[in-house]
């Protein structure tokens, strides 16, 4: 029997209004179903390389995105499909990018690990563990120097808290009092290694104390809790009070990457976490509050699935880049 410790909220978690809840539910379904389709496409060799899926973690990206404003910026990890879709990247831009097509968000030059869209503030998804943190610190520096009121958010995993860039970034953000929010998605495994093999503390948020910034451990499966805790950090950043470190306790249902089946998990752990699935938690609240019923949920799910299938068919017909694209975008010319 695996017991999951659920952190208590440090703020009042008020129910979000029905429109915000419905938008979050749609978004989480879009992320979940898009990634399920991506997994199928990988296994069918329709997509090359590797992929890192966030199925089970959708509550974090959706909860954070529900607070962000236009002009805010985000850097994230190679497990970044959820962040990109939550911020508003289209399924078309993502699927086409996964297939290496010109109509992808990076014109096929990025791929699964580098979903990037400047128009929604997504500065980049990074394939080097921890490297996105200093970049987010720099985006926060711009916001502060230009006095834009924007905040900078960076997502990273539990294992990234053992890398130098993490510590250097928290330190620099704190001494410069920058509007950046560090969001650790603690899914308990760094690749195939459980957290306790590699990290001497259970709650990673304690590491914030060394940099004199608030550190909070959050129930990352409940998007309303994520929203409420992140909102406090965002207001703090916008009002010039500096950075915050939020540790989101969450779980990935699939392996680290494409071929990992997750044999290192203790029996029962996956099932225990699925009991607290972020989509099912929000769905249950909405049903309990009379905002949704099972039929409507099934319809929403089916409609999302159909839409994604249409996108995949469209993307398959899209052109690949050509030799003319090989050497473009290395430098800005002009």
């Amino acid at each position: 029997m695996v017991v999951i410790n659920i952190p208590e909220p440090t703020v009042t978690v008020a129910p979000l209004d029905v429109d915000t809840r419905m938008a979050a539910l749609r978004k989480m379904l879009e992320i979940r179903l898009t990634e399920e389709r991506i997994q199928e496409m990988f296994l069918a060799n329709l997509i090359r390389g590797t992929t890192h899926l966030c199925i089970g973690q959708e509550g974090v990206s959706t909860g954070v995105a529900s607070v962000l404003r236009k002009g805010d910026t985000v850097t994230c990890t190679y497990r970044g499909h959820g962040h990109a879709l939550a911020l508003g990247m289209s399924v078309q831009a993502m699927i086409a990018e996964m297939m290496g097509k010109t109509s992808g968000c990076c014109h096929g030059k990025g791929g699964s690990m580098h979903m990037t869209d400047a128009s929604i503030g997504l500065l980049g998804a990074n394939a080097i563990v921890g490297a996105q943190l200093p970049i987010a610190v720099g985006a926060a520096l711009t916001a502060k120097m230009k006095n834009t009121g924007a905040i900078s958010v960076t997502f990273f995993g539990d294992a990234a808290t053992n890398i130098g860039a993490f510590h250097e970034s928290l330190n620099l953000a704190s001494v410069w009092k920058l509007p950046v929010i560090f969001i650790c998605e603690n899914n308990r495994y760094g690749e195939y290694s459980p957290q306790h093999w590699t990290t001497p503390v259970e709650n990673l948020s304690v590491r914030a104390a060394a940099y004199n910034m608030p550190g909070v451990t959050v129930d990352g499966q409940d998007m309303e809790t994520v929203h409420a805790e992140f909102k406090v950090a965002a207001e703090r950043a916008r009002s010039g009070e500096g950075p915050t470190f939020l540790e989101m306790k969450t779980y990935r249902y699939l392996g680290h990457s494409r071929t990992d089946t997750g044999p290192y998990r203790p029996p029962g752990e996956l099932d225990a976490w699925k009991e607290r699935d972020p989509i099912l938690l929000l769905k249950a609240k909405m049903i309990a509050d009379g905002q949704l019923d099972e039929v409507e949920f099934a319809e929403l799910r089916d409609a999302t699935e159909r839409y994604i299938a249409e996108v995949v068919e469209w993307a398959r017909q899209e052109p690949y880049p050509t030799e003319a694209d090989l050497l473009t975008d290395i430098f800005y010319e002009g």
């Binding site: 850097t75 500065l123 610190v137 720099g138 711009t142 250097e168």
Partner: peptide
């Protein structure tokens, strides 16, 4: 590593 990375973040935001 932090301030060179921060230079990148600052450069791509203006």
């Amino acid at each position: 590593e932090a301030f060179i990375g921060a230079a990148l973040g600052a450069a791509i935001t203006g």
